[in-house]
Structures are given as structure tokens and as C-alpha cells.
Amino acid sequence: MSEPYGQRGRVLAGLVLLALLFGCLVWAGATTGDLTESRYPDEVEVTPDRESYVGDRVVLGGFVVDTDPVVIATRASGYGRFTLVDADAQLKNDDGPLEEGDRVTAFGTLEDESTLVVERTTTRESSETSYMLLVSALGGLVSAWWFVRHWCFDRGALAFVPRAGDDPSSQGDGRSAIEHADQRGRAASDGGDRRG
């Protein structure tokens, strides 16, 4: 099967999709920012300008430096301290209570410049983040290997085609599109030789 609109049509369609995608990336950058992150101000914005956020709902990430009451520091140096009200009671992914050194993300209303009334608290160990990055890299490698194992690039069609035996719909003879193309090429060559 040849390209329905030719290779130019295919390239044009690709350029249009790329332009739309790039437009989305710029549009998001100019308007909403990171769509996968919370839409509430976080510790990076709140810590240096606390008074501006009093009364607002914010998300503060940090590590626990005191437990009675729970106090977190949003900076690694130990500065940027906030007291969390109801942090243990609102913990969502652990039975608690929080201990010194725990990494915490707390969401709630900033009651005053150093107190957050917590609606939700989550905690995770730094090793869990390392685990996520490691298995994510593994997942990416597995998928790339899986694709390369079952697909190959047909230089004639300038497209990926299933390898021999991986596409049941073309298993009449169990060969890939490339092998078909090679055979067509050889047949044409043989015909030319015979005619010659």
C-alpha cells in the first residue's frame, strides 16, 4: 500500500501536527505553566513572600524539623520554617505520626506567616523518588527494546513495518514488508536480465 497522499502529503501532515504541538507547548508556557503540577502557590513562591499569601491555599514541601507541634523547613539549610496544624491527622499515605527528617508535602490555608492549617499531608522517602526515576528509565528502555525487536525501518517506504512473523495479518508467507520489497526488487532485476 502506497502513501495515500504521497510522501509530500505525509510530510505536510507531520509539519502541521508538529506546529500544533509546538503551539500548545508555547501556549501553556505563556498561560498556565506546568499542567501536571498543582495550581496552588508552593514553597518556592511562598517562603520569601509569606505575607502576600496569608489566607490563601498553598502547597508547602519540606522536611520535618520538629514534631510537637509539627514544624517543617522548606529549605535544605533548615530555614523557611512553618508550623503545620493537624499535619498528622490529615496524613493520607501513612499511619503516622510524622518523625523528624520525614519529607512532607502539606496542602492547606496559610493562617499567618508561619502557620499552615493542613487539609492534606503526604510523605515520601527520598529513596522512593530515586526508585521512581530508576524504574522509569527501565520502563523507557524496555519499550524501546520491545519496539526495535518487533519493528524495522523500511528504507523503500521510509516507514516502520512489522518484522517477519510479528504481524499475523501478513503471515500468508511469514515475511516482512521489507522482504516483500526485496523480492519485488529481485524479480524486477531478474526480468530485466532475462529481457536483456
Binding site: 504541538l21 508556557g29 505553566g33
Partner: peptide, 8 residues
């Protein structure tokens, strides 16, 4: 230009 990968 402003930019965010997040629409992906």
C-alpha cells in the same frame, strides 16, 4: 518564547 513541556 514562553515554554512548557506539560501539554505532552
Amino acid at each position: 518564547v514562553p515554554f512548557s513541556w506539560s501539554p505532552l
